[in-house]
Amino acid sequence: MESTGKTPALKVSEIFLSLQGESSRVGLPTVFVRLTGCPLRCVWCDTAYAFAGGQTMSLPAILAEVTVAARDVGRVCVTGGEPLAQAACLPLLSALCDAGHSVSLETSGALDIGQVDARVARVVDIKAPGSGESDRNRWQNLALLTANDELKFVLKDRSDYEWARRLIEERQLAALCPLLFSPVDDDLPAATLADWLVADRLPVRFQLQLHKILWGKLRGR
């Protein structure tokens, strides 16, 4: 965590208004606060530009920019990178909630989510083997999940799918919170994953990244 004087500060990659592209909130206008930095290096990562760079901003400065961007919207998603890699992410989340926003957090699942403000909806990844980072999954997080949270699997191939299917059954994940399955762009055809889900009747929500369908890989959308 950096600080500006005595005020906590964060390294911010970008702040922008768009449509939520994933999760149960898909399609809703949302302000995104993308924080810089991530300790993971998933082979299919689509936000590698957030690994470094950005600008240092104080909490009041972030809140002020979000207030303007979120006018008549009221929804904020803190994402990355891995936002929890910055200690000041925790007070940022609480401050956004205090300001009256409906707040969600997108996190890799590799770091402890236990200190996240209870008002925040946590969208937690479970990294499949095809990501190259499955050994970083923090399984202790599963015991902290509530019905307000979501677990997200990004799947590269049939092997990833079978791994996730077994995990859901063995750990009874559907009883914890909603589950999301997404295909990796250019590796797993969306229709193929959809066919597998239908055939196996899995208790998951199939999702595509709406923002990429609309705008491709354009930043800030």
Rank of each mutant, 00 (worst) to 15 (best):
E82A: 07
S108K: 02
L90C: 09
C89H: 08
I62C: 02
I62F: 07
S108N: 09
L105A: 08
V76N: 02
A85V: 13
C42V: 03
A48I: 13
C38L: 09
S58I: 02
C89R: 09
G100V: 01
A88W: 11
T107E: 01
F51D: 09
E106M: 03
T36P: 13
V103Q: 05
V73G: 09
L35K: 08
L90R: 13
D72L: 15
A52C: 12
Y49G: 03
P39K: 05
L35Q: 11
G81F: 06
V103L: 07
L96D: 02
Q55F: 11
Y49V: 05
C42S: 01
G74R: 10
L40G: 06
H101N: 05
S104E: 15
T56G: 12
T107V: 04
V66W: 04
R41D: 10
W44G: 03
S102W: 13
G80V: 00
T47A: 04
G109I: 01
V78I: 05
A48R: 12
P83K: 05
P60Q: 06
E65N: 09
P60R: 00
T107K: 01
R71V: 15
L92W: 05
R71I: 14
V68W: 15
F51Q: 12
G81Q: 03
L63H: 06
W44K: 06
S94C: 14
E82Q: 08
V43R: 12
A52V: 11
G109P: 07
S102H: 13
C97D: 10
Y49P: 02
G53H: 04
T56E: 12
R75C: 13
L35G: 10
L40I: 11
C89T: 12
Q86E: 10
L59R: 00
V103T: 07
V103M: 01
T36E: 14
T107I: 02
G54F: 01
L84C: 10
S102A: 13
A52R: 12
C89Y: 11
E106C: 02
Q55G: 13
A95Q: 12
G109E: 06
V103I: 02
Q86P: 08
M57N: 10
C45K: 00
C45A: 00
Y49R: 06
A85Q: 13
L105D: 06
L96Y: 05
C42H: 06
R34P: 10
C97V: 14
D72E: 15
R71L: 14
R41S: 12
A69F: 12
A99N: 09
C38F: 06
T79V: 07
V78E: 02
D46V: 00
A64Q: 14
M57S: 09
E65G: 10
V78S: 05
G109A: 04
G100N: 05
G54C: 04
I62S: 02
R75K: 14
C45E: 01
G74S: 08
A61R: 06
A99E: 04
R34I: 06
G81R: 00
Y49T: 02
S104D: 12
E65S: 14
L96I: 05
P39L: 08
W44S: 06
A61T: 05
V66P: 08
Y49D: 06
E65I: 13
L40C: 10
G100K: 00
A64G: 11
E65A: 15
L40S: 11
L93G: 04
T79G: 02
R34N: 10
C89L: 09
A95H: 05
M57R: 09
T36K: 11
D72C: 14
L96P: 00
